[in-house]
Design a protein around this nucleic acid. Structure first.
Lengths: 233, 233
DNA sequence: TGGATGTTAACTGTCAACACTTGCTGCTGT
DNA sequence: ACAGCAGCAAGTGTTGACAGTTAACATCCA
């Protein structure tokens, strides 16, 4: 019947649910409840939770169950720093292997972002933004880098809609993207790296200005005071 | 009796065994065999293997069991690139927070390395070298960076004794370390970062010169042609 | 002899039941 | 009232058994 294993199916479904914010940070993921709703036994659920914990999406407290991981301001900032280092590496590697096709693809993303911004279509904008950055990672040709980056992004990505406040006006962001593409076309790895580093540092600096409380308000609203429990699906 | 969970104990024992090369790359880790030797049921074994797979130490092939992960030359090179990016970030962050105590600690490591090299004590040298680099990661104050770095190092670390061939003479390496410490003391993040990048790039360049076959010979001797099966302990 | 096919042993995927912790609730005594 | 303790309910940790798949071996037919 099903080619894939139950664990994989559950894993995918849970990951999707967490990334789409249907299980917000702080949600308790109880094995029996999940087993009931997915119609499987606790075994596959436990395995899936284990792997999600390795991805950083859930935290397992021994003998006390699993909860959807929430990032503090400090942790979010730390993730940003790592992400910056990884993407700077990616862009350096990519510039050396860039071809016309890649440049065209990147330009396409930028102009699509332009349209999305003009239409105030925030969701599309962020999707395009993610694709733009991911393009560098994949074009780098370094699979390990892809894995590690996906992991870091995974824990941050859940917040992306809320993080509009960090980015502020979209137009400067698009212009920054455009400059990065230009540096890639010129084949200047150092300039591209510097531009990218600056681009990523913008929301980082905004983040620093927020107090922990303001951060919690915008980013972890579901975490306090009563943690909801995962139900159904 | 035991405060910790069985899974954790098995996890730790397995990880140690892999890192110490008692289970060389390519070793098949069969659940029943491991369960017998550790005196537990398959449940904890499966969980431990899952987590190890997340750490990159073992590879799980659906329905075909787990094997100790081996790195190809390409994968090893990719890991080196990521490691370089992470450590460069670490050193930049660390320089800004460095105090006299840290500098003293780093100098201690360097002089100990000097002694170990003079006594031809390769094992001690590599231990000290690991500690030196790890010191930056921990001093950076970025926990996420620590996690990711530990993950990347974990898959590379198993090869460290074999990788002496990549480093060649130990004396230049020690001198490089000394220069890095000096830059940290001066509080110059860019110089420290550049020195560290150069330091890490040395074995990378050597690695590039090896053919895939030479690499496999020195680094993955246990992977071909007959994979051994894990037994006892 | 060589290749395709049936058979079988070994192993993983999954399940349901049991044991043990943990945190809560309500009692008791002061 | 309130602190402390006992009992209880809920949930995780662990186990052993069963089912399904894989891969190797033996067998059969050209």
């Amino acid at each position: 019947m099903e080619r894939r294993t139950l664990t994989e199916q559950v894993l995918e479904a849970l990951r999707k649910a967490i990334l789409e914010d249907r299980y917000p940070p702080g949600t308790e993921l109880q094995e029996v409840a999940l087993a009931d709703s997915y119609g499987v036994s606790r075994g596959p659920i436990r395995e899936a939770l284990n792997r999600l914990s390795a991805e950083g999406l859930v935290t397992i407290r021994p003998r006390r169950g699993a909860v959807v991981t929430g990032l503090s301001k400090q942790e979010f900032l730390e993730a940003y720093q790592v992400r910056e280092a990884l993407e700077v590496l990616a862009v350096k590697l990519t510039v050396e292997r860039a071809d016309d096709e890649l440049v065209a693809q990147l330009e396409q993303y930028v102009s699509d972002m332009d349209e999305a911004a003009a239409a105030d279509d925030i969701d599309s904008f962020f999707d395009l933004n993610s694709s733009f950055h991911k393009e560098f990672i994949e074009a780098s040709g370094n699979r390990r880098l892809q894995e590690v980056h996906a992991q870091v992004i995974g824990t941050m990505g859940r917040y992306r809609r809320r993080s509009l406040v960090l980015r502020g006006d979209l137009r400067p962001s698009i212009e920054e993207h455009r400059q990065i593409v230009e540096a890639v076309r010129k084949g200047d790895p150092d300039e591209a790296a510097e531009l990218l580093a600056h681009h990523i540092s913008v929301p980082q600096k905004r983040l620093l200005e927020l107090t922990e409380a303001e951060f919690a308000k915008d980013f972890n609203s579901a975490e306090v005071p009563f943690a909801t429990t995962a139900k159904e699906l």
